[in-house]
């Protein structure tokens, strides 16, 4: 053993390192195999949770009833066999730090769904499912985070927890349907508010929601037909 420790024979060293790497590769292969299913499940669950928030009550599994068109994925929600609403997920690279993925719930006429009225304000069915924006600035545009306070954790926890939290930027899209002119923030001459300090994120979010809604409006017949098809 002493010999191995002090050896300078380059072949012995090479073989030793090779053996180490081979063992490491085996261990990694084992763990990659072990976690493949749970990771898939986790991703599926994230999509399903988002779908549950943006869609009305459904009795099929929209995660399996999908249709892709122009880079936007559509999920069809059915009740008693009839298509009642569509969720759509699309992405943009125009965020402050790259990719932003949004999911929106759409009515069959192309309008963005309103989930509920909270204090007279509409809650829109728009969620940002993936983003890397600056914490505290860009994330404010993207997040629907229910604020927990020291008081609220002692109150009954179930209290209107079913609703997602409001978001000034995302809630603007409630009941809007995408026309020919792209949606813009007021700074770019449009009619949507933006968050000071996060103009680029606001623009990107407005853009991607428009893209989703517009893709649906343009291809409405085809998408509804595809999603109404009976699938196993």
């Amino acid at each position: 053993m002493k010999k191995l420790k002090e050896t300078e024979n380059i072949f012995v060293l090479g073989i030793f390192l090779g053996v180490c790497a081979a063992i490491a590769a085996l261990v990694l292969a084992y763990f990659a195999d072990l976690t493949r299913e749970p990771i898939k499940k986790m991703k599926m669950q994230a999509v399903n949770n988002a779908l549950k928030e943006v869609l009305p009550a459904f009795d099929n599994s929209p995660g399996n009833n999908t249709f892709k068109k122009d880079g936007v994925t559509f999920y069809g929600a059915r009740k008693d066999g009839k298509l009642i609403a569509v969720a759509a997920s699309g992405d943009t690279m125009k965020g402050y730090s790259g990719k932003i993925v949004a999911m929106a719930g759409l009515k069959l006429d192309g309008k963005i769904r309103t989930i509920a009225l909270v204090d007279g304000k509409k809650l829109s069915a728009v969620l940002i499912t993936e983003q890397k924006e600056t914490p505290g600035l860009g994330t404010v545009v993207c997040e629907r985070k229910r604020q927990k306070t020291i008081v609220s954790i002692f109150e009954e926890p179930g209290k209107d927890a079913a609703l997602p939290a409001g978001n000034k930027i995302l809630d603007q899209f409630a009941d809007k349907s995408a026309g020919k002119t792209p949606w813009q923030v007021t700074k770019a001459g449009g009619k949507f508010d933006y968050m000071t300090g996060a103009t680029i994120s606001s623009k990107a979010v407005t853009g991607v929601v428009y893209k989703i809604a517009r893709t649906f409006v343009v291809n409405r017949q085809e998408i509804i037909k595809e999603l109404s098809k009976a699938k196993k």
């Binding site: 060293l13 180490c20 490491a24």
Partner: peptide, 19 residues
Amino acid sequence: RNIVPKKIRIPVYIVVIAT
């Protein structure tokens, strides 16, 4: 520790850590 050759101990450690 008693069988890793001194000359390549750092690469071996890195392989272990990365794994």
